[in-house]
Amino acid sequence: MIDKNQAIQQQLRELFESQNLAVLATHRSRQPYASLVAFYATEDLKHLFFVTPKTTRKFENLKADAKVAMLVNSTTNQAVDFHQAVSVTVVGTAAEIVGPERQPILKRYLEKHPYLEDFVRSPSCALVRVSAKSYFMVQNFQNVMELHLNQ
């Protein structure tokens, strides 16, 4: 039998590899807020990274409460999306990365988003790591699987 567990993880990797952008959900004072970020995910699916100017609402929000959600999907804005697209919601906690581990991560980040070089090198930008707690994957329009990371 196909190992569905492995197959689903592989699907996640492929989706994260193929997509540049994710919707990031943060909140403040009980008000949810959504924004678009360029991201990359680690091979082990434990972490996702994005870069944001520190002056943004999203950064302020996640500083106030680290609980965030991200949505990555393969839609193409066409009718076929309804049966073809895969969408994944990531739930986890966000933290700014500072110190020596910042450089290797930025290098990996720029391999995926080389056009953002100037942006990420700016001192006003923060590199943020989201440590995933759970993934919720939707495909075939309504089929939903949950993946929970064992702590």
Partner: peptide, 10 residues
């Protein structure tokens, strides 16, 4: 590392 379970089955 993952515990996978179905949430919505079609």
């Amino acid at each position: 590392i993952f515990d996978i379970k179905p949430r919505q089955l079609i």
